[in-house]
Write a protein that binds this DNA or RNA. Structure first.
Lengths: 216, 216
DNA sequence: AGATAAGGTGACCACCTGGTCACTTCTATC
DNA sequence: GATAGAAGTGACCAGGTGGTCACCTTATCT
């Protein structure tokens, strides 16, 4: 067969999933360049030639894994927006935070690769992928902010773009703290269980609601 | 000479600085493992053996560069705390943001290495360095928050740890947006000039002051 | 001028990398 | 059971890696 992709698609489901899982893990642990095809095939117990028949080359493996990752990440956002439509703005933010944590728990390796990609310039697909993800994030938040202003829950003198930036900063860091040590500044988010996460998500949204100052 | 460090210290200032500059750039561009000793010596026009005489091994190069980096980063924070003592809380935050930008402009490569280190687990010194930096950051913010509450500028029902987390999130992201594309969510922070930075720093602190909501 | 020691060199090493391809093995169809 | 074609294999390749070390060059001191 000429198309390398086809061979892989024909594989039995179980094997196909095992290959993807092992490859994803390797990229999650080592990033792109430091990831080793030799290690992947060794762990899988298959020959190196097979993997290259499936995906053509190393970049092909990576692109196959990340081809569908963006959509996996976009869908929960859409669900949140639809199911919480009309609800309180800060409640929607809170729900979004918890949805993010759920995604990370379900796809921890994908999230690790994404984080590595953030500051490592030589990842394949980096520009297209990052701009897509960032755009999805702001495209999700912007309508929430606009609706929040309309309904009178947010100050009507807000700069919406600045509000999106602010929300994005805090929410991203919340998720990073859940997934990576060192970043939670001692508030105990790292690998916290569901109950703790709910409390912290509530506390964070309260800060957003009230601000820090007494002069408002 | 037995001590490899000594040889390097004896070098003429100009050469020593050139070696450090070139090595720092290499690590900033490629991270630790992907950085190439061959490329460094090639750019410097010296023999590989020389570099190994100076630093012993690759990790030695990296550790020499980062040995003093922490202090370079801590000093501006101390200066800010001392020179703005007694001033308005949000003004101090604003000044800190701009000081961060100044540091990044002065040491762009160090900051790039730090960002890469955040999510790449196999950096040498990562644990010690990261915990030191994060601790410095919270140790800087905590007294500011405490004093802000005491002086009545911050709500007295604040959870100080949560406040520090919140400030840290927004400030970190502000600096990342200044240094890395993709992250500023369209508010134009990336490589912005001084005037723009001042405006944005003001806007961000205003958000912190007032919060987002109308119910306060 | 000769001696001593430091600095500087680059061919060489073992090891690992992504990638290839002639070959074997399996499996389904007739 | 023969045949066709897909799936699987692993020795092999060129190129890059961090690291070594016997040798050479330069500077300093008596």
């Amino acid at each position: 067969m000429d198309l390398p992709q086809k061979t892989f698609e024909n594989l039995p489901d179980k094997k196909r999933e095992r290959v993807l899982a092992e490859a994803t893990l390797e990229f999650a642990e080592h990033g792109y360049h430091q990831a080793s095809v030799n290690r992947i095939v060794e762990r899988l117990g298959i020959a190196k030639g097979s993997l290259f028949k499936y995906f053509g080359n190393k970049q092909g493996i990576f692109e196959y894994i990340f081809g569908h990752a963006v959509n996996q990440f976009k869908k929960p956002l859409k669900d949140i927006r639809n199911t919480t439509s009309g609800k309180d703005f800060f409640e929607r933010i809170e729900k979004s935070l918890l949805a993010g944590c759920t995604f990370i728990t379900a796809h921890p390796h994908i999230y690790r690769i994404y984080l590595k990609m953030l500051f490592q310039e030589d990842f394949p697909l980096r520009n297209t992928f990052l701009s897509e993800v960032r755009q999805a994030s702001t495209k999700f938040l912007r309508p929430l902010v606009d609706q929040g202003i309309e309904s009178g829950q947010l100050r009507n003198d807000l700069d919406p773009e600045m509000a999106v930036f602010h929300l994005d900063s805090v929410m991203d860091r919340f998720l990073q703290s859940y997934a990576v040590a060192h970043l939670d500044g001692g508030i105990g988010l790292y690998e916290a269980d569901h109950e703790v996460l709910e409390n912290k998500a509530r506390a964070v949204t309260d800060f957003l609601r009230h601000g820090l100052g007494t002069t408002s």
